[in-house]
């Protein structure tokens, strides 16, 4: 069953996503791509969390956890990339 906090999570996420996207201008283009992909994968995970309560539970549940895994991988890759370049900020 869909839980109310999951809906609130998604609503808050959708509300602040434009703010996040407008803030990524401070990053270099390659880092921006990581951030956008990271945010999108988290949004997909949140949507899947809600969707699994209505239909195709197995599919959406797997998708949700896979998206978290993808987001984790992107976060790790992005921060390693920043480390290698000595910074993420646009010069």
């Amino acid at each position: 069953m869909t839980q109310p906090n999951e809906v609130v999570d998604l609503a808050v996420a959708l509300f602040v996503t434009p703010i996040i996207l407008s803030g990524i201008r401070v990053f270099e283009p390659r880092v921006r791509a990581f951030v956008v992909a990271f945010v999108l994968s988290l949004l997909v995970a949140l949507v899947s969390t809600i969707a699994e309560g209505f239909a195709a539970y197995q599919l959406f549940n797997t998708l949700e956890h896979s998206m978290y895994a993808v987001a984790g991988a992107l976060a790790a890759a992005g921060t390693i990339r920043i480390w290698q370049r000595g910074g993420a900020w646009r010069r």
Binding site: T62, H65, S66, Y68, A69, A71, G72, A73, L74, A75, A76, G78, T79, I80
Partner: peptide, 12 residues
């Protein structure tokens, strides 16, 4: 997937 997520976020 959860373990992978845990590792990714931990590294980050």
């Amino acid at each position: 997937a959860d373990v992978a997520a845990l590792l990714g976020f931990a590294v980050a």
